[in-house]
């Protein structure tokens, strides 16, 4: 249970980056397997081969883009923690929006605003869910808050990366 509390700040970046990569690679593997299977010419052999190819080409890519999101996200998060001197949901929301903006920087200001709004909204939703879950969990079982707190900031990068990938 100890590793479940969030890491202290500088190490959180590494943790999030690696976690996001793993998550993206596994999740991308699952989705790409299905996609490759369906997009191949008929015949079991072709389909299996096609899904293997899709996994090999796309899953690491997806993992990489998740990792970029996660790393940048927690870097900004840690920066905000240092600057503001406190840790609250606004940190994650702001850093989600900033991450979205920075990663879309090469597509021009309009794309930056759109992507920032998306990141901010997603993070706000996740934080809200985390808070609700914490409140619910703390009334249900004693150790609730500990593990309810963690998932909130982590998977956000994931979906952002995912969304951007298909855009």
């Amino acid at each position: 249970m100890e590793e479940y509390a969030r890491e202290p700040c500088p190490w959180r970046i590494v943790d999030d980056c690696g976690g996001a990569f793993t998550m993206g690679a596994i999740g991308g593997g699952i989705f790409q397997a299905v996609k490759g299977f369906r997009n191949s010419p008929s015949g079991m052999n072709h389909r299996l081969k096609g899904s293997m190819t899709a996994i090999k080409t796309r899953a690491p890519q997806l993992g990489g883009s998740f990792a970029v999101w996660g790393g940048l996200f927690s870097m900004i998060d840690c920066g905000l923690v240092k600057v503001r001197g406190k840790e609250d949901p606004w940190n994650s929301i702001t850093s989600g929006a900033m991450t979205g903006a920075i990663l879309a920087a090469r597509n021009g200001p309009v794309a930056m605003v759109g992507s920032a709004a998306m990141g901010g909204i997603l993070l706000a939703l996740i934080e809200g869910a985390g808070i609700l879950l914490t409140r619910f969990a703390s009334s249900q079982f004693p150790t609730g808050p500990q593990f309810a707190e963690e998932p909130a900031p982590m998977p956000a990068p994931s979906y952002g990366g995912d969304f951007r990938q298909y855009q």
């Binding site: 249970m1 939703l125 869910a129 249900q140 004693p142 150790t143 979906y159």
Partner: peptide, 30 residues
């Protein structure tokens, strides 16, 4: 020790289930 989740820590599967439910809710809203 209330509920079906033992005292100390909910086990792995419960946590995965919880994560899925939370992700599903967030994903629905988004």
């Amino acid at each position: 020790a209330v509920g079906p989740y033992g005292q100390q820590q909910p086990n792995c599967f419960d946590r995965v289930k919880m994560g899925f439910m939370m992700g599903f809710a967030v994903g629905m809203a988004a």
